[in-house]
Design a protein around this nucleic acid. Structure first.
Length: 910
RNA sequence: GGGCUUAUAUGUCAAUUGGUAGACAGCUUCCCUUACAAGGAAGAGGUUAGGGGUUCGAGUCCCUUUGAGCCCACCA
């Protein structure tokens, strides 16, 4: 059969995914080996609001490479997919839609109607990313797809909540929290980020009661003075010792507030006097508690001020109120000054709205117990094992050690509503169901808490809730088989938000380690070296790359940069792998054009003595590559695996092996029809079929090795190869329909170092002659004569490969001997163990040739200088390992030998 | 303020426990040689950011300066 001249990625991509899925190849049940070891990964569930970005593509590639690799090795493999309900994001989308389509607010339609719409939104738009994953070729088991708000997962959430409540870890209380006035909900510390801005430090003058003295406080948020309930000074501050215990008349309000002493105040900063707003500042909150200060809440949920701020300010936006406070102080002559000041604002991680710290009644979760479990795992068993190891283990541990209570309630409607009910008297009943709550309360008249749980609360359970655990069901086959999962692949941004919490909850609720290894991927940066973002417009869309270069090229490129460090996107690199796809396609195409009578037969890779050096060499190289690729993958060195495969396939197999055996393989197909009776051709035929079988088998093995990285291309080509079928499957899949994704992953082949070094000599010889040709500008059509002087063994090697040497070096004759016997007008070269000459009567320019040789001597001399530098160092000779020293001495001898030869040659040319 | 990462060829990146720097792309020269011009052959190109130290030997370990980036805490 004959393939198209170049690889059409789209065509291959459209063919195989559905079939794989339909045949159940992605599900662990495909594995028929009852003793198969499990291998499992749970996907970090992408938000239903999301669409695929480069970070996903990178992580999915890594997960798929591991999954496909392990599956081919015969593991009972599960990569479990799913999505996250993404509370705030979905809520915002639905609010937006409601406003646009119907000009309504959520309150207008009520909670039930709103959540119905959210579900509808999820049904309609929520599978964008899962569809995109199909395009990626992700071999996830869709039959086990989960969503964080599935019934069973929701049940798990209630179970965990209730258990933690019952043991006193979850509690409700008024605490200082982070409020997002835009999303109108509390958010946890981890969801707050920072923004540096130029701002003002404003100095406000407060009159002291019963005197004409004043004091000055400095603030970056002047409007909060409306909620001040004290002024604090340091007890050791000489300047203010006499006013401690007195009162300040707070301007713009009619309040009298105490001047208190607290160590917290920094004598050096500002004026040394600090206004204290316990309801709106974390530090002031603490001071307020110590001094029993009143908390005056002056903000509404939307960031406007409330009645507590006074009639003039009520309903006013916080930033307008800030301006007005400053203005009013100025009018009163109480504004001392305003300094330029760089301030770091806490902002909502998602919407970048400035966060207001405030006191609010929320649900919290104490983490101490679970935290200690996770710390013990790390301390005693070094779990999870991070890759790359440093610094993540240390960061993880330190973070756990300093863990504070987690604010778990959110003022949203989309999510898991908190399973707490209140009776008319305000008593709280936490229960797994409404029915149970009613029984507890002994009342039918209960109202459920309006809040939902932080989205990360359900994500935290992902490593076991997805396997069927929900409190009622606590043992499932999947839980037994697949938890702990083997490896988690994620970015470093959610080590705290997600990774640590999964470790904690999984240990606590199913007494297992969520995952043994954690691969922390680097960030894919834009071409400008900055993280990809919409605002920077430096994003690269994976789908565009799929269209432009093909899914496989994109995947193997992503794998080639997956070393753990951040990586800058580079179109040129991905093009290399597009070319690589084409190279694989065409190498296969060549073999197929000459595959008459051949079959894919792994037996053909077993060597016998009459096999040629080239055959021994390529099989050794193949085996070495397979071994190294397996090792690299075990270490999660994806870039190294890719490099090995690329080098083997392109350099060893295409550049050398195909060229070496080309004549042998193409011979009869060109000639047999011309002269069918020629006995020598028939004599050649069996040998040739063997050669053809061997080369298609090597291709087949290469495709297997490449399959985890390039699933579509390899599947497409595998199907074209002669006699591929389920008999090539790993034994765990012998009954399944034929596909490369179930073929046995190559490993543990024999390595023949002697053949490798002999072949290297052949390659060196050809390269030397080619170098002479290129540097002396000998026309490609011009055939040369090659003379080589070397020992008998090497002569034998060259003789065995004479045909190939003549062809690849474009020569007529190869003359071998112990010494060279050539005319003066010859170009010469040296290599390890041999001296080479190419007679060039009439073609050689002696001056040019001398220059060429001197160049080579210079290169050798540089190396010699380095080596002698070391060898002349007595300490080196005394202390370095003996083998090392001997290696250098051998090399020096070799160089001296070669240099001598070259010098003689130069002399002869004079 | 505390901690961490990083600096290697023109570009993007590699380099096992310290053993004397590689790949791809680009560049130069030549070639449409019946698998592939998305190709082939041959080349040039590096005081591994600067300085110091440990060592027989440092891209690799230690100190330091400078540049880039990240995390945590705090900032009246």
């Amino acid at each position: 059969m004959e393939l198209e001249k170049s690889y059409n990625a789209k065509e291959a991509e459209s063919k195989h995914y559905q079939r794989w899925e339909a045949q159940g190849c992605f599900a662990p049940e495909i594995n028929q080996n009852p003793d198969a070891k499990p291998f499992s990964i749970v996907i970090p569930p992408p938000n239903v609001t999301g669409s695929l970005h480069m970070g996903h593509a990178l992580q999915h590639t890594i997960m798929d490479v591991l999954t496909r690799w392990k599956r081919m090795q015969g593991f009972k493999t599960l990569w479990l997919p799913g999505t996250d309900h993404a509370g705030i994001s979905v809520q915002r989308k639905v609010v937006e839609q409601l406003g646009k389509d119907e000009r309504k607010k959520p309150q207008d339609i009520g909670r039930e109607a709103f959540t119905q719409r959210a579900w509808a939104w999820k049904e309609q738009f929520g599978n964008t990313i899962t569809e995109q994953m199909r395009r990626e070729g992700a071999s996830v088991d869709w039959s086990r797809e989960r969503f964080t708000m599935d019934e069973s997962l929701s049940k798990a959430v209630r179970e965990v909540f209730c258990t933690l409540y019952e043991e006193g870890s979850i509690y409700r209380g008024k605490r200082m929290i982070n409020w997002c006035p835009n999303d109108k909900t509390v958010i946890s510390d981890l969801e707050v980020s920072e923004e540096k801005k130029k701002g003002k430090l404003t100095y406000l003058i407060y009159p002291i009661e019963g005197s004409d003295k004043t004091l000055t406080v400095a603030t970056t948020r002047p409007e909060t003075m409306l909620g001040d309930t004290a002024v604090a000074v340091n007890p050791n501050d000489e300047r203010y010792r006499d006013i401690i215990g007195k009162f300040v008349l707070l301007p713009l309000t009619n309040r009298k507030i105490p001047i208190i002493a607290d160590e917290y105040v920094d004598l050096e900063f500002g004026t040394g006097c600090v206004k204290i707003t316990p309801a709106h500042d974390p530090n002031d909150y603490e001071i307020g508690l110590r001094h029993n200060l009143e908390q005056i809440l002056i903000l509404n949920n939307d960031g406007t001020l409330n009645e507590n701020a006074g009639a003039e300010f009520a309903g006013m936006d916080r930033f307008k109120a800030r301006a007005k406070v400053i203005e009013d102080f100025e009018t009163l002559g109480l504004l001392e000054k305003q300094d330029d000041y760089e301030i770091t604002l806490p902002v909502c991680e998602r919407c970048k709205t400035v966060i207001e710290p405030m006191v609010s009644e929320q649900w919290f979760c104490k983490m101490d117990g679970m935290r200690d479990m996770a710390l013990d795992l790390m301390k005693n068993e070094n779990l999870p094992h991070f890759s790359p190891q440093v610094p993540h283990e240390k960061v993880y541990t330190t973070w756990l050690e300093n863990l504070k209570d987690w604010t778990i309630s959110r003022q949203l409607w989309w999510g898991h509503q908190i399973p707490a009910w209140y009776d008319e008297a305000g008593n709280t009943f936490v229960a797994r169901t409404y029915e149970a709550a009613k029984t507890q309360a002994n009342s039918d008249n209960l109202t459920q808490d309006e809040d939902v749980l932080d989205t990360w609360f359900s994500s935290a359970l992902w490593a076991f809730s997805t396997f069927g655990w929900n409190g009622e069901v606590t043992e499932t086959d999947d839980l037994n088989d697949f938890c702990p999962t083997d490896v988690l692949v994620t970015g470093r941004d959610i080590i705290f938000l997600w990774v640590s919490r999964m470790m904690m909850t999984t240990k606590k609720f199913v007494n297992k380690t969520a995952f043994k290894d954690v691969i922390i991927t680097g960030t894919v940066l834009g071409k400008d070296g900055k993280p990809m973002s919409k605002s920077r417009k430096n994003g690269v869309d994976p789908l565009e790359m799929f269209d432009k270069y093909g899914v496989d090229a994109t995947r193997i490129y992503l794998a080639s940069i997956a070393s753990g460090a951040d990586i800058r996107w580079n179109d040129l690199q991905i093009e290399t792998y597009r070319n690589f796809s084409n190279k694989i396609w065409n190498a296969t195409r060549f073999c197929l054009l000459n595959s008459e009578g051949a079959t894919v037969d792994p037996e053909s890779l077993k060597l016998s003595d009459d096999d040629s050096i080239a055959d021994k060499w390529i099989i050794s190289r193949l085996n070495k590559t397979a071994n190294a690729v397996n090792t690299a993958l075990e270490r999660y060195h994806f870039h190294e695996a890719v490099r090995l495969l690329y080098q083997f396939f392109w350099n060893d197999f295409c550049d050398w092996y195909i060229e070496l055996v080309k004549d042998e393989i193409t011979f009869s197909s060109n000639n047999v029809s011309d002269d069918e009776d020629d006995l020598s051709i028939w004599a050649n035929s069996e040998k040739q079929t063997k050669a053809k079988t061997r080369i298609v088998t090597i291709i087949e093995q290469s495709l297997r090795l490449l399959h985890p990285f390039m699933p579509y291309l390899t599947e497409e080509l595998w199907g074209f190869l002669p006699a591929t079928g389920s008999h090539l499957h790993n034994s765990a899949y012998s009954n399944a329909d034929a596909t490369i994704m179930l073929a046995d992953y190559p490993k543990d082949g024999n390595i023949d170092e002697k053949a490798e070094s002999e072949m290297q000599s052949v390659i060196d010889l050809i390269s030397r002659v080619r170098n002479i040709r290129a540097e002396l500008s000998i026309k490609p059509a011009e055939k040369v004569e090659i003379h080589a002087a070397c020992n008998a063994d090497l002569q034998q090697v060259f003789r065995e490969n004479e045909a190939q040497i003549l062809k690849l070096a474009r020569a007529n004759t190869l003359t071998l001997g112990e010494t060279l016997n050539v005319p003066k007008a010859s170009a010469k070269a040296v290599m390890q163990g041999a001296e080479i000459a190419v007679p060039l009567e009439g073609l050689i320019d002696f001056a040019k040739e001398r220059e060429r040789l001197e160049n080579q001597i210079n290169k050798l001399n540089v190396e010699l200088g380095q080596l002698n530098g070391q060898l002349n160092n007595e300490n080196f000779v005394a202390k370095a390992p003996v083998e090392k020293v001997q290696d250098l001495r051998d090399r020096v001898a070799e160089i001296e030998n070669q240099t001598q030869t070259l010098n003689k040659t130069i002399e002869a040319l004079k």
